[in-house]
Simulated scan of single mutants.
Amino acid sequence: MQDRATRIVLLVVAVLLAILVLQPYVNTYLFSAREPRPVAARGDLADLERTTIKVFETVAPSVVQVVALQGRGPAGGEPAGSGTGFLWDNAGHVVTNDHVVANGSSFVVRLASGEVLPAEVVGQAPNYDLAVLRVQRQGGLPAPVPVGSSADLKVGQTAHAIGNPFGLDQSLTTGIISALKRRLPTSGGREVADVIQTDAAINPGNSGGPLLDSAGRLIGVNTAIFSPSGTNAGIGFAIPVDVVNRVVPELIGNGRVPTPGIGILAGDETLAAQLGVSGVIVAGVVPGSPAERAGLRGVDQRAGVIGDIIVAVEDEPVRRLSDLTDKLEKVRVGDTVTLTILRDNRSRTLDVAVVDVGEQVSRNRRP
Rank of each mutant, 00 (worst) to 15 (best):
L48R: 12
T173W: 04
A125Y: 00
D89R: 08
V355R: 10
H93A: 11
V354N: 04
A283E: 15
G208R: 09
A68F: 05
V361T: 14
L168S: 09
G253M: 09
V361R: 06
P367D: 13
S178W: 01
L339A: 07
Q2M: 09
S113C: 10
E359I: 02
S62P: 10
P287A: 14
T198P: 07
N232S: 15
A201K: 05
I281K: 06
S82W: 02
V64W: 06
G83F: 07
P146Y: 03
S149F: 06
L342W: 08
D308V: 04
L30I: 14
T336C: 01
D194T: 01
D129H: 08
A131Y: 02
G208A: 03
R302K: 14
G234H: 07
Q70D: 05
L275P: 03
A80K: 06
I262E: 04
R343D: 06
S105W: 03
I176E: 04
A46Y: 03
V116S: 15
A41C: 02
S227M: 06
D44V: 14
P287H: 10
G83Y: 08
N164G: 05
L130I: 13
L350N: 05
I252E: 06
S105Q: 15
S289L: 03
S106Q: 10
A238R: 03
L251E: 02
R183I: 11
Q301T: 14
I202Q: 05
V318N: 07
V100N: 08
S214E: 14
Y29G: 01
G123Q: 04
V285H: 00
Q124K: 14
D169G: 15
A224T: 12
T198N: 10
E292Y: 01
Q274P: 02
E269H: 02
V243R: 06
K327Y: 00
S187K: 10
G104C: 06
P74N: 07
Q2V: 14
V285S: 10
I306R: 12
G220S: 09
N245I: 00
P144N: 08
L153R: 03
S214C: 09
Q124S: 14
A14Q: 06
G216V: 09
